[in-house]
C-alpha cells in the first residue's frame, strides 16, 4: 500500500477483463491493508493467511458490484472487517478471564493501571497490548470490534459506521455496552487483587 504510483483504476479495469497478472498485482498491492485489518481483529486459533485469502476471494467474486461510490480501499476494508466479524461470531465460547492466566508482567501492568497513583512505563506496551486483547476477548464480537476500532485504532464513530455498515447510534450503543462490561471486569479484577 505504500506504493503511491500504483495505477489502481487501470489495474481494476484489467482485473474486470479477467487479466490474471493484474489480479496478482491488485492482491500484492492490497495485502498490507488487508493483513493489518486481519491482525487487529483476528479470532483465536484462526490463521491470518486463510482469513486474508477469504477476503480476497470475496473481493474478486463481488468486484463487478463495485460502483466507485467510495474509494476502492474503503470498499475492500469493509469486506475485510465484515469477514473478520463473521469469523469472530462463529467462535461461540469466549475463554474465561482469570487472574491466574496473566503473566507476571501483565499482572504488574494491570496493577499499575488499577492503582492510579503509579505510572505505567512505555516499556510495558507489549504486555499492555496482550492484556487489552485478553480483556477484549471477553466481549461479544460486535462490541469487541467497536472498542478495538474506537480505543485502539482511534477511529471516529463515523468511520466505524462506514467500515461496518452499522448506523452511528448502534455503534455508540455497542461502545457503551462494551465499556460497561469492561468496567465490570475491572471491578472483578480489583476485588481479586485485594483478596
Amino acid at each position: 500500500m505504500g506504493d503511491d504510483s500504483f495505477d489502481l483504476v487501470g489495474c481494476l479495469q484489467r482485473v474486470r477483463q479477467h487479466n490474471q497478472s493484474a489480479s496478482r498485482e491488485l492482491v500484492e498491492h492490497l495485502y498490507p491493508l488487508v493483513i493489518r485489518i486481519v491482525r487487529s481483529h483476528l479470532p483465536r486459533r484462526a490463521a491470518e493467511e486463510d482469513l486474508a485469502q477469504d477476503i480476497f476471494l470475496k473481493m474478486f467474486t463481488r468486484i463487478e458490484q463495485y460502483q466507485g461510490a467510495v474509494p476502492f480501499t474503503h470498499w475492500v476494508s469493509r469486506i475485510a472487517v465484515t469477514t473478520c466479524i463473521d469469523q469472530l461470531r462463529a467462535q461461540k465460547r469466549r475463554p474465561e478471564f482469570r487472574w491466574a492466566d496473566l503473566s507476571e508482567k501483565e499482572t504488574e501492568v494491570l496493577d499499575n493501571v488499577l492503582t492510579d497513583e503509579r505510572d505505567v512505563a512505555p516499556g510495558d506496551a507489549m504486555e499492555a497490548r496482550e492484556l487489552v486483547h485478553k480483556l477484549l476477548g471477553q466481549l461479544k464480537p460486535d462490541d469487541r470490534l467497536v472498542i478495538q476500532l474506537l480505543d485502539l485504532e482511534q477511529k471516529t464513530i463515523a468511520e466505524i459506521s462506514a467500515l461496518t455498515g452499522w448506523n452511528k447510534t448502534l455503534v455508540k450503543v455497542r461502545a457503551f455496552r462494551a465499556r460497561r462490561k469492561l468496567q465490570k471486569l475491572f471491578k472483578e479484577l480489583q476485588s481479586k487483587e485485594k483478596s
Binding site: 501492568v109 494491570l110 497490548r129 487489552v132 480505543d151
Partner: peptide
C-alpha cells in the same frame, strides 16, 4: 475512574 484506567491502558497498548 474506570474511563481513566481504560484510557491509560489502551494508550500504553497503542505504543506497542
Amino acid at each position: 475512574r474506570f474511563d481513566h484506567q481504560w484510557q491509560k491502558l489502551t494508550a500504553l497498548a497503542r505504543l506497542a
